[in-house]
Nucleic acid binder design. Sequence first.
DNA 1: ATGACATTTGCAAAATGA
Length: 269
Amino acid sequence: MRLWHQFFGLTALKIVTYNVNGIKARLPRLLEYLAEQKPDVVCLQEIKSADDGFPADDIREAGYGALWHGQKGFNGVAILARDAEPVERHRGLGGDPEDDHSRYLEAEVNGVVVASIYLPNGNPVPGPKFDYKLRWIGRLTERARDLLAEERPVVLAGDYNVIPNDDDVFSVRAMQDDALMQPQSRAGFRALLAQGWTDALRTQAPGGGVWTFWDYQAGAWRRDAGFRIDHLLLSPIAADRFAGAGVDKEYRGREKASDHAPTWVRLRP
DNA sequence: ATGACATTTGCAAAATGA
């Protein structure tokens, strides 16, 4: 029955962004998530693995094709597709030949263009890391402009390391000096949205109060002291197919969890 | 707050994160 629905495209696609904070340490959680939720597409960030250390066999055995863009020690992104092989379109972000961080991977899967994005954190502020963050947002915005011009369904999924609004954080005061909440970070994100992208989770919950990240420190999970930094931006043609968005929050509370929870959007066929 | 907490590298303690 599932195959029939899939073949005729009658089931909505579940597209997920999940910062795993180390794919080796998180592999049991990830495989469990794939088996339980059966998402169609999963964009991973912070795999913290070199290309040859990526657990491709385990992921294939779980029924997922995969592309990955790794880096030793930190960063690293991947795109998984259930019963499909994602077709690579872009590896790395243009606009800076000096930038050797693995933070951007773009593919086509099930007729949708999907990007897995790991935008720089940018702390401390001010400093070179914050400058890099702001430049990176600008470079992403350039790529996003080209993608919009294709007039196709596109989902820009990832850890943006930007808290867009005051109601996207448990405490404005606690985070006010952080790179995630600086006016320049927010302005960059707003300029990207203003091209014509739809923030899927914001559409689902316009009043805010939905978190995707809870720090490991200071009992943040226990206190529900989180914020929203994992975003799924939809091109107009993808937004026409919007069928809901949410956070699979319970995975944040499990043993050896990532500090991020899987965040998803559903697109109608 | 030079903090907390977690992961990786590499085998101690530094780098990185948010």
